[in-house]
């Protein structure tokens, strides 16, 4: 117990030190080398970022831009992962469903979301729809396979146990196959949320009037390095927070899967 808290303290200190060391190297590099011509130093960036947070960049503040991006991600992610998980579970449980959908899915999956940008614009114009389409696609491609593996690898005797207790096929699917695939589904959701977040940036860089991708794009157009780096930092933080939230949800949903105590 004491040993453990000591270890936690050491790890915490190391984490803080490494962040400061990174900022220090960045600062020294900018001050004493030619890097200063390419990159503003961290203090300038942080002051600039603070200005964007309390003031505005473009039409609204930095945090509002982040929220715009977040909204797109959440809508697209919900649609894409819901479709992906449903299809994956069906393909995992029913050979016929796999025979029908698997070949198409296997070809669509490796196509990166960016490759869909032109088509999405032609199909859906320049509004919100193409962006949500791209994000949904990214979430879909990354959640399907894991859901399928989860549904496929359900312990056969556990299914027999449900049958012996009187469950019909529908009840087996909903009360046995789905819950036992949950850990595997979450592995897919983890990757899916990261890819969805990465895709929103790509989608916004093409055509948008707000969002973190727009900040970066506009920063490049105005040759404003501080703005670009502020955007990048927010993207990193946003992705970090999203995966953290996802892991927390996973911890609750899969608590039966870890040995307590």
């Amino acid at each position: 117990m004491k040993e453990e808290s000591k270890e936690n303290l050491v790890c915490g200190l190391c984490a803080i030190t490494s962040v400061f060391a990174f900022l220090l190297v960045w600062y020294l590099g900018c001050t004493f080398t030619a890097l200063g011509k390419l990159l503003p130093d961290p203090i300038t960036v942080l002051i600039g970022m603070w200005g964007y947070i309390v003031g505005t960049v473009g039409k609204c503040s930095l945090l509002m831009h982040a929220l715009h991006s977040l909204q797109r991600v959440l809508i697209g992610f919900l649609i894409g992962s819901a479709l992906g998980i449903s299809l994956g579970l069906l393909m995992g449980r029913y050979r016929l469903a796999r025979a029908i959908f698997n070949p198409i899915f296997r070809v669509i999956r490796p196509i990166p979301p960016i490759a869909w940008i032109p088509i999405s614009i032609i199909w859906f114009g320049l509004g919100e729809t193409p962006k949500i389409f791209l994000i949904a696609l990214a979430a879909f491609a990354n959640t399907t396979l894991n859901a399928m593996t989860g549904a496929e690898s359900v312990d056969k005797t556990v299914i027999n146990a449900a049958k012996m207790l009187g469950a019909n096929e529908f009840q087996i699917f909903t009360t046995v196959v789905i819950p036992s695939a949950v850990p595997s589904i979450f592995a897919g959701l983890q990757v899916g949320i990261s890819c969805a977040w990465a895709s929103v940036v790509a989608a916004e860089m093409v055509k948008a009037s707000n969002g973190l991708g727009w900040i970066i794009q506009a920063g490049m157009d105005n040759n404003n390095m501080t703005q670009i780096i502020s955007g990048i930092i927010m993207i990193g933080l946003g992705g970090f927070i999203l995966t953290y939230i996802m892991r927390t949800i996973e911890g609750v949903a899969c608590r039966w899967n870890r040995s307590g105590r």
Binding site: T157, N160, A161, A162, M164, V176, P179, S180, W256
Partner: peptide, 11 residues
């Protein structure tokens, strides 16, 4: 049926 590998629903 009581199974050799027990086969409880772990969730």
């Amino acid at each position: 049926v009581v199974f050799q590998n027990i086969a409880l629903f772990p969730w």
